[in-house]
């Protein structure tokens, strides 16, 4: 699903060049449930942006679903994002003047699906996430957990190959965080690859594979079998 070889990325600001990703290699297979961890400055946001086709890279290869992502113009990038990737953000990023249903339907608008049809589909997804009764509410009338569920519905509506979640529980209390993680797990159970960026260990521990970034390369990969160990180590830390 995702194949990254020798990925380099630096940011140039004035005379300073900041080398963030330094030859990163990464393989994520279809249907995996992965979390990416790392201290700030480790390059996890940069990696997420590249994974999400929001940013380009300087050197290396990034294959998404067998297709190399390289040298896309903005329109091509937008189409790729729309077709392949569902985004979930820490601060939900719902459009404030649109109600829940319209927010969920937005990706389909960019696929030129008719208004009637996309609102119908949006209602289905809201129903699946238990928000049918809130479909006509504005984001400001919803709780944090509800907002994130709307955002998840929006990420799912275009049938993406990958869900990229940037600190999806960062703005939620622990109870709601667990609920959101349950939903993401269900999504993953349907065969969609889910990648979560987080700095919370207990959230990361709910995934099946943890990738720890360190100084722009992979520091450590903890897979399913080791997760119990990891939990133990966590409690010691």
């Amino acid at each position: 699903m995702i194949s990254i070889q020798d990925l380099h990325k630096s940011y140039v600001t004035g005379n300073n060049s900041l080398h963030v990703l330094k030859g990163l290699n990464l393989e994520i297979k279809e249907g995996e449930f992965v979390s990416i961890m790392g201290s700030s400055g480790s390059g996890k946001s940069t990696l997420l942006n590249i994974l999400g086709v929001l940013d380009d890279y300087d050197k290396g290869n990034y294959y998404l679903s067998g297709k190399r992502i390289w040298g896309l113009n903005e329109t091509q990038a937008a189409i790729t994002r729309n077709a392949m990737i569902g985004f979930i953000f820490q601060s939900f990023n719902l459009i404030s003047f649109k109600n829940a249903m319209e927010n969920v339907a937005l990706p389909l608008y960019y696929q030129k699906v008719s208004r009637k049809k996309r609102n119908l589909i949006a209602m289905e997804y809201l129903d699946r996430l238990g928000l049918k009764d809130w479909a006509h509410h504005l984001p400001s009338e919803l709780s944090g957990g509800q907002k994130q569920r709307v955002a998840i519905a929006r990420a799912l509506i275009s049938n993406p190959k990958i869900i990229l979640a940037d600190e999806p529980t960062g703005a939620l209390d622990s109870q709601t965080s667990l609920e959101v993680m349950d939903i993401l797990k269900e999504v993953n159970d349907q065969g969609i690859t889910v990648i979560i960026v987080t700095h919370e260990h207990d959230i990361a521990a709910l995934t099946k594979k943890i990738i720890r970034l360190k100084d722009g390369v992979i520091g450590e990969i903890i897979t399913n079998g080791d997760l119990q160990n990891y939990r133990n180590r966590l409690t010691q830390e």
């Binding site: 929001l54 903005e74 937008a78 189409i79 994002r81 077709a83 990023n93 459009i95 960019y110 929006r154």
Partner: peptide, 14 residues
């Protein structure tokens, strides 16, 4: 911010 969201969701520059 709204425009950023739209672009992330697949809004083309056009």
């Amino acid at each position: 911010k709204e425009i950023g969201i739209r672009k992330a969701l697949g809004a083309t520059p056009f």
